[in-house]
Nucleic acid binder design. Structure first.
Lengths: 246, 246
DNA sequence: CGCTCCCTTGACGACTTTCAATGATCGTGG
DNA sequence: CCACGATCATTGAAAGTCGTCAAGGGAGCG
């Protein structure tokens, strides 16, 4: 189904040549509906797709896609790369409350016509499709409802993770979550590169980066994962799942 | 706007006479659109409202409204009372992941036509309106999108609370959250009765009930709250907000 | 009246954060 | 191409917090 090679696309961040925009843009992918969420895939949206595809836009690693408080004029579909969603609290500190990977729609939590509730920052060179609000047709809106309900359930899952798991289980569950994301993208589920720094991961999980590091080390000692720098290998998904379940 | 007396409706759980169904059902309210979320209020939904109001239904304290895994045939609008949303994990333990108060729509996280992702249990005698899926018109669907995006942002807020706050701040933020909910219902924001047990509250916040108890005691010592049993008084909302901010 | 469920309090132990310092890696500029 | 600086990862030791276990008290219900 995917026309991409079945290698870890995220590793494009390893050489981190940041290359030319051409490299990150992945022109070959720009017109492949597989980059869109499954729910937005298929015939019914062809008219809409044309609209979307015409307005794709690159964002370089570290750049801000949209900033919390800015007026919202469009949704974005993430094609290539990874984003983090951060909230700036009253005292100015930044808290990571989510990550987004290819296939995600950015802006579901924001009600139409108002402001962005969060800031989205590219973790690696990314490529996004702008979906102007005018293009949000009735049919698309219905698809978005499904996406939102999916995301709501996912948030409930995060709630479970944050509230009821130990740090080791949280980190493990986070890895499995990434693994699932990769798997849905038809990429290797057991071997991938963390697109975010330990600090971001720690912020997201409500931990300190030192604890993330120690915990990963502990998981490694138990043989549940292997690390080479930011590169993760999960030899036995079932074993890790069992560990994170309790 | 509200025709109810401006007293704390939730205190109806204090005598906990559990009374007759008549008492909890609050027949006088059954046909007041104020019980519905503001977004569902107003003229455009009159046809729909009739449908809803015809099928309102009482649920007694402790009873299960819908159970995780059951097939989903309707949404519910909560009119009177309070619910908790619990997830039963693989090992059979129950985890509270949310509370719902009058005005809430139950079932937003569940995609249409499938199963309930969570179990909803009444914390006190409640009264709900059943909204069959057929009654979910295009117009209503559009309103639901707003409700869902609101709820998503709320979940992000919970995420922030769980990940970045100390236990004291979590408990305080929880009280403020309830206070806001009461305020939106035009009820006293500074004096209300906790509709849930410490155990449920602790489960929701990822704590133990002993810690909730101790933390509330600590907040009381600092003069931020006052307790008489389950009844809470917040003398200075700003002070508590400042405390919970950091 | 007694049972049950819930709230409360204390002491102990495990775990995570905090603070501090070193090592590794990447990007930049000479 | 190498050197430097900055950022990120790693590790240790100390301190604080919260969970666990245990026991007692109180309110509601049958």
């Amino acid at each position: 189904m995917l026309h991409w090679d079945n290698h870890d696309v995220a590793t494009s961040s390893e050489p981190r040549a940041a290359g030319t925009p051409e490299k990150a843009s992945c022109h070959a992918c720009r017109f492949k509906p597989e980059c869109l969420p499954a729910e937005l895939d298929g015939e019914p949206l062809n008219a809409f797709e044309r609209n979307v595809l015409r307005q794709s836009r690159p964002v370089k690693a570290g750049q801000v896609l949209v900033r919390q408080g800015e007026e919202m004029h469009a949704l974005y579909a993430l094609r290539v790369g990874a984003l983090k969603a951060v909230i700036t609290t009253a005292d100015g500190t930044e808290r990571v409350i989510g990550f987004r990977f290819p296939g995600a729609i950015i802006g579901l939590a924001e009600p139409e016509q108002t402001q962005w509730a969060r800031t989205f920052v590219a973790l690696e060179d990314a490529w996004l499709c702008r979906i102007p609000m005018d293009a949000v047709t009735e049919h698309l809106r219905r698809q978005l409802v499904k996406l939102m309900s999916h995301q709501l359930r996912q948030e409930y899952n995060y709630h479970l993770n944050l509230a009821f798991k130990s740090t080791a289980e949280k980190v493990g569950a986070f890895l499995l979550e990434l693994s699932d994301t990769w798997h849905r993208r038809q990429l290797a589920a057991q071997r991938f590169t963390l697109p975010m720094h330990y600090t971001d991961m720690a912020s997201y999980l409500g931990m300190r980066h030192e604890s993330v590091c120690r915990t990963l080390g502990s998981l490694e000692q138990q043989g549940l994962v292997t690390r080479e720098g930011r590169r993760i290998h999960i030899p036995d998904l079932q074993a890790l799942r069992a560990f994170c379940a309790g």
